[in-house]
Amino acid sequence: MKPASPLLERMREWTFALAGPGAQERLSRLTQKARNEYGVDPYGFDLDYAIGAIAPFLWLYKKYFRVQLHGMENVPRSGRFLLVGNHSGQLPLDAAMLGVACLMEMDPPRAVRALVEKWVPTLPFVSTYYARLGQVVGTPENCRRLLRADEALMVFPEGVRGLNKPWSQRYQLQDFGPGFLRLALETDSPIVPVGVVGAEEQAPNLFNLAFVARLLSMPAFPITPTGLPFPLPTRYHLWFGEPMRFGGSADDEDAVLAAKVEEVRGAVRGLLQRGLAERQGVFT
């Protein structure tokens, strides 16, 4: 076993302190099937590292965004599934909060992997950090392999169009690409729709400096009220819908799939509308 660094050990203690009693015991039940003698699974996911590394996100989850869960019982406790939701907030903190929710609030915990853009592996430190947290590049090959191994994936079919959309389009779902539905059909995976309420207001994108984004080969370069994409302390509500199962061939034309894609998009929209109607305020 590798020796844990003192910093990582303190981060892990922070995680357990934030998570409250029983968390350590619960997380010990998350067994990684394919973990080798160096503490990683074949994708480079390192659970010991991850428990320490999520501490700042758990702090955001508990203290900053004060996340409230709705319909968590809809998330399958075992077996493969695709978590499909709206994407927003300039920084992908919605993904982090969903990941923290499934890892820290479920018993047994579920490590849901997020799929990252193809430019992430070119970034120093970020690439390694994401890999140790179990995230993978979103190639179809990776997705199929993970789902067939009964893992859970998080997908945002809006992609960066959702993440970096301007303030005026908040809670307006962008188009969903059909890729996730093909994947679900091919691997016979249920789709769990999720509506993330709160992230859409965390960092209003006033305008996008497209030429700076191109210069830095980033998907977008948003200018927000704080100047940076640093989020405001909005309250997050995560609304999980009932699992949806679809029949049919993964090889159907896009037009045939479009109706099913629209059904999932409709489910996410429904969850968002309910979440918006029921919340008291953006920050409360």
């Binding site: 074949p42 994708y43 480079g44 193809k118 430019w119 590049v137 090959e141 990776n142 392999r145």
Partner: peptide, 9 residues
């Protein structure tokens, strides 16, 4: 390559 799948067939 940065965009390689984790396990190439």
């Amino acid at each position: 390559r940065p965009d390689n799948s984790n396990f190439l067939p």
